[in-house]
Amino acid sequence: MKYRSSRRCKADDGIHDLRFAIYDLRANALLAPSFTGHVVVKRQLTITLEPIDEAALLTKRKISDDMGAVVRFLGVVRRTEEERTIKAIEYEAFHRMVEHQFKLLFDEMEKSWPIESVRLVHRIGVVRVNEPSLWVEVVAPHRGEAFAACQWLIDELKRVVPIWKKPFA
């Protein structure tokens, strides 16, 4: 079974569809091979200037009795950026488009995996080295679906969601 992203990010007509991703589910043991159902996924998107409060996020997590897997991902600012030592990264977002693109990504997730909920927090503004800039949580019945959906969401975020970074030395 192949999953094909239904959206295109056009960098150049016809020739340069850099963003058109095709995933072969059979190639990845983590991915669900046969999901055809449709569930309404609980979604939460937060774009914030504030530090990510993981403890507070965890206390608000809700999981139904049918769910067996929670995958969380934390993206942290590294000390090196393109072989340069940095102190921080400043993130900039095109907010309206960020919200729209995430909605499209969450729609795709809903069609592709039987996940119960997805929560994503992305910091903007200045984020210091060793601080998290991204927090993602996916809840699904099994670990394969949760890992796959989370991985896909982060990959797509890095392809289509208009957020940019500016490193500071």
């Binding site: 959206r7 295109r8 990010c9 056009k10 960098a11 150049d12 007509d13 016809g14 850099l18 963003r19 993206g75 993130y91 977002a93 095109f94 488009m97 729209h100 992305h122 800039s133 991204l134 982060i154 975020l157 890095k158 392809r159 289509v160 969601v161 208009p162 957020i163 940019w164 970074k165």
Partner: peptide, 24 residues
């Protein structure tokens, strides 16, 4: 929404130009 080079512009369109995205 992303658009390609062949998109026909209309009066009032708001166009945004930017480099490849780098979130995460």
């Amino acid at each position: 929404d992303y658009q390609g080079r062949g998109y026909l512009l209309k009066e009032g369109d708001e166009v945004s130009l930017f480099p490849p995205v780098q979130g995460g």
